[in-house]
Amino acid sequence: MNLIEFFGRLHPVMVHLPIGILLLALTLDGVEWKNPKFQSPLNIQFILWIGSGAAIFSVLSGYALSQNGDYPIDQLEQHKRLGYITSIFFLFYAAVRNWMVSKRIGHLTLTLCGILLLITTGHKGGSLTHGEGYLYALVEPNKDQKNSTATLTDEEVKSIEDAGWVIAPIAAGDGKLRIVGFNIEGSAQQALKQLSNFPDHIEELKLSYASITNADLQSIRSLTALKKIWLDHTRASDSCIALLLELEKLNYINLTSTSVTESGIIQLKQKKPRITIYPAL
């Protein structure tokens, strides 16, 4: 490791120094703006000069760290530019601060801009090291891996599974289900009828290799939330096209290894031009 690389690796430590110093200056300045009679125990302009110097040092170490190519370029460029702007801004702030303090709006604008720049630059830096969604991850509702079939009762889950279906939750917490029929052993028609009790939950239905006919499919008409259906390796034919057209939210149909003809596909595409269709091979 050479000296420049070593210097760069100090960036995550050094960067907190100007943040702390400048935040102190901004806080004191904010109090002084709110209460002009306030006498700061510290020289705010001097703190700003120290903070700006530390910011420049931090920018240099950040530049050295950026040379190893370990970070996403777009995010890195944003953080780099904000780092330059922030250090130049605070140099300017330190220079004009004592002159600006008598101008109420100018003083407030300067303080607020300083806070905004400090937060934004720091956040972009944090996103680089911890990942872009790190901060918001705490408030996202679907972060915990839990059984999203919780929206169904145990009896309902059992009734679906007893029919031979495998329930694969699409994501934790959203209650949307992918239902897979590889393991259906009894009557496919009965199994499909069982699903019609849960029209709002089922978004994906995988019937690949299931022993089903067009007649068995009639009960899927009630699955109004269905977005994707796999009918590959089944006895589906052109007769099921009218039924598929009734499902308004459907945006994906897999018909490979079925008897659906080219005219059936054309019919589907004419009525639903935006749908993704994989025709019979």
Binding site: N142, K143, D144, Q145, K146, N147, S148, V166, I167, A168, P169, I170, A171, A172, G173, D174, V180
Partner: peptide
């Protein structure tokens, strides 16, 4: 407990994969 009894039962990912 549930995953121990049926370890290969499908589980929800953190977000739609």
């Amino acid at each position: 407990g549930s995953s121990a009894e049926q370890p290969l039962r499908p589980k929800a990912p953190h977000f739609p994969g």
